[in-house]
Design a protein around this nucleic acid. Sequence first.
DNA 1: ACCACTATAAACATGT
DNA 2: TACATGTTTATAGTGG
Length: 137
Amino acid sequence: DEDDLTCLSWLHQRNNLLPLQPLSKTAPLPQPGSLQAARPAGSCKPPYSFSSLIFMAIEDSPEKRLPVKGIYEWIVKNFPYYRTASGGWRNSVRHNLSLSKSFCRIQRDKNKSTGSGSLWCVCPEYRSTLLEVLRKT
DNA sequence: ACCACTATAAACATGT
DNA sequence: TACATGTTTATAGTGG
């Protein structure tokens, strides 16, 4: 569907822009003469919910499905904040996958035997909702 | 005040 | 056995 292509390219644009704009939440004022005016890119938590992060990860995958490990890797790669963040967020990702109606688990086929766990995908009936949430973020 | 959503932690089970 | 993956319950914050 061409709708898919539109959404994907749109996602990639966001991915390129957002890590550079942490969205001043606590608004740390750059003190004149302060040595800490500029913070590292990954020091601020991204404004996306775990649902959105998972959604983006899956949408960005070629086959629209990822194992848990793949979701971890996408998040770390696109949002360096999670590279150094303590591991609790992985728990939250799994928690969200299990609890959210937006995602569904599918058994891994006879593909590669190296498969660890299942693959996760976006339930089609919730895809538009997730897109809408993302658009407003 | 209530409710939906979110984040976080943790107990627990199951699989590799 | 250790670790990854899932499921579930509990608790707290936020915002409509």
